[in-house]
């Protein structure tokens, strides 16, 4: 079953990345929604693994997303969807496999009807919305986007693992909200990377990052990391602020959202009985 989980992991991520390659709003929205559906499948398969004590992990293969046309990536996605559908036979829970299968059938039909487009997400044009930035500001922005897009993916996977293994409804709700927040940031950064022609798939997360023994310790260091992330956003806002108000405002907004994440993590710590927050 771990193999099925890996396939669905690769698929939701590939669909997610493909949604930023399309310049057509309808196509982009559609692909993003399908990625969310595949992410739900991923969670259901993970729950099935946990229920049946099947060992699993968040390993996956490299996803080759560097394409010139949307059709190329959609064909790859279609092939992977077909492979996933064939492997569903190994899931004993027939309700689950038929639910996933129904979704796959429709997504296959739908992406087959998407009109082809030229993809410029990898052309390294290094400009964002015609905003003029100095070389230093562009480099700072580039570095930030790679660093933080990975970080958001990492957080999605860690919170997802914690959510799947907690018995507390309160903690599950907090982790779910943090996952949604990280998805939003991940998407915003991926959109900017695509526009700048530097879209890249985040690297695979190392096991020891999500196999967490001590949640309290993880949350405490997570708060420190959120504070550091706030600082990075502030630095970037300052670096681009003198050159562009729109970008500066955006990074201030992201920085302020970290306050909310910190509040949620403190709430999680309180519900774990840690009272020194």
């Amino acid at each position: 079953m771990n193999n099925i989980l890996i396939k669905s992991h690769e698929l939701w991520l590939e669909l997610f990345m493909s949604s930023f390659m399309s310049k057509d709003m309808d196509n982009s929205k559609k692909l993003l929604e399908y990625s969310k559906i595949l992410f739900r499948h991923f969670k259901w398969i993970e729950n099935e693994c946990i229920k049946h004590n099947v060992a699993y992990n968040y390993d996956r293969n490299q996803i080759p997303v560097k394409v010139d046309t949307l059709k190329t990536i959609l064909n790859d996605i279609a092939n992977r969807l077909k492979q996933l559908e064939l492997s569903l036979i190994d899931i004993d829970n027939r309700d689950l496999s038929s639910r996933i299968s129904n979704d796959i059938e429709y997504i296959l039909y739908s992406i087959n009807n998407i009109t082809d487009e030229e993809v410029t997400s990898f052309d390294m044009n290094m400009s964002y919305k015609d905003i003029k930035l100095s070389q230093d500001a562009t480099d700072a922005l580039t570095f930030f986007l790679f660093e933080e897009s990975y970080k958001e993916y990492e957080l999605i996977m860690i919170y997802n693992y914690l959510k799947a293994h907690t018995k507390s409804l309160k903690l599950a709700n907090i982790f779910e909200t943090l996952i949604e927040e990280s998805f939003f940031h991940f998407g915003e950064f991926a959109g900017m990377m695509s526009e700048m022609g530097i879209l890249g798939v985040p690297r695979v997360i190392a096991k020891e990052l999500y196999l967490i023994d001590n949640i309290t310790e993880f949350l405490l260091s997570g708060i420190d990391e959120e504070l550091a992330a706030k600082e990075e956003c502030k630095k970037l806002s300052d670096a681009v602020g003198t050159e562009n108000k729109e970008l500066s405002k955006f990074f201030d907004f992201i920085s302020n959202q970290e306050n909310y994440h910190i509040a949620l993590m403190k709430e999680a710590l309180e519900s774990l009985g840690y009272d020194n927050v």
Partner: peptide, 18 residues
């Protein structure tokens, strides 16, 4: 930023496990 460097950032070579 050098395009070779960007390539390593977009698609790190040899990342993974044997």
């Amino acid at each position: 930023m050098d395009s070779n460097l960007l390539e390593h950032m977009m698609q790190p070579k040899n990342y993974g496990v044997i």
